[in-house]
Structures are given as structure tokens and as C-alpha cells.
Deep mutational scan, measured.
Amino acid sequence: ATNIVGKVKWYNSTKNAGFIEQDNGGKDVFVHKSAVDAAGLHSLEEGQDVIFDLEEKQGKAYAVNLRIK
């Protein structure tokens, strides 16, 4: 899926990971530091509006192509 709108639920820069809550009510999506880095960002803030694509690896959904809304 592409161009999904959501809000950062939480992001821990020590653990280099967090979750994004989908505005469409879907399951929360894992976001890794690699996606944050690829977006040219240093970190994510709780409640921040984002747009992202979903990629599945080994049955788990990940946020990729992250951008700030």
C-alpha cells in the first residue's frame, strides 16, 4: 500500500524504532531508523503527521518512503 496517512504513536531514538498509527484505523505500523534516515530526518516526534508506504517482510508490516505531511 502507498501514501498511507498516519501519526507517530511513539518513536524511541535510543532503540531506533517506533510505531505509526494509521489514520484509516489499520494496525499500527513499525518504523525503523533506516526509514527515518532515508527521509533525511533525525528523529520523529509523537503526534507528528506522516505519509508512508507499507512494505511487508517476513509477514510484518514496515513503514518505508516516509515523509512529513
Rank of each mutant, 00 (worst) to 15 (best):
A1R: 14
A1Y: 12
T2L: 13
T2K: 14
T2W: 12
N3T: 06
I4E: 03
V5H: 15
V5G: 11
V5E: 12
K7A: 04
V8G: 00
V8R: 01
V8E: 00
V8K: 00
K9S: 03
K9R: 10
K9D: 00
W10H: 04
N12Q: 07
S13R: 13
S13A: 13
S13N: 11
S13Q: 11
S13H: 12
S13E: 11
T14C: 14
T14I: 12
K15M: 14
K15E: 08
K15R: 12
N16V: 04
A17G: 15
A17S: 14
G18S: 01
G18N: 01
G18P: 01
G18V: 03
G18H: 02
G18T: 02
F19K: 07
F19M: 12
F19Y: 12
F19E: 07
I20N: 00
I20Y: 00
I20E: 01
E21H: 11
E21K: 15
E21Y: 11
Q22R: 14
D23F: 15
D23A: 15
N24E: 08
N24T: 09
G25K: 08
G26K: 10
G26M: 09
K27E: 10
K27Y: 09
K27W: 08
K27L: 10
D28F: 10
V29P: 01
V31T: 02
V31P: 00
H32D: 09
H32L: 08
H32P: 07
K33H: 08
K33R: 11
K33I: 06
A35V: 09
D37N: 13
D37P: 01
D37K: 14
A38W: 06
A39Q: 03
G40H: 07
G40N: 08
L41V: 07
L41D: 01
H42F: 12
S43Y: 13
S43P: 09
L44K: 00
L44P: 01
L44R: 00
L44F: 05
E46V: 15
E46W: 12
E46P: 15
E46R: 15
G47K: 05
G47A: 05
D49F: 15
D49Y: 15
D49C: 15
D49H: 15
V50R: 00
V50T: 02
I51W: 08
I51F: 07
I51E: 07
I51P: 00
F52E: 00
D53V: 03
E55V: 14
E55M: 14
E56V: 15
K57D: 08
Q58H: 14
G59K: 05
G59Y: 04
G59P: 01
G59L: 04
K60R: 14
K60Q: 09
Y62D: 02
Y62C: 09
A63D: 02
A63I: 04
N65M: 03
R67M: 04
R67V: 06
R67N: 03
R67W: 04
I68L: 13
K69G: 11
K69F: 13
K69A: 11
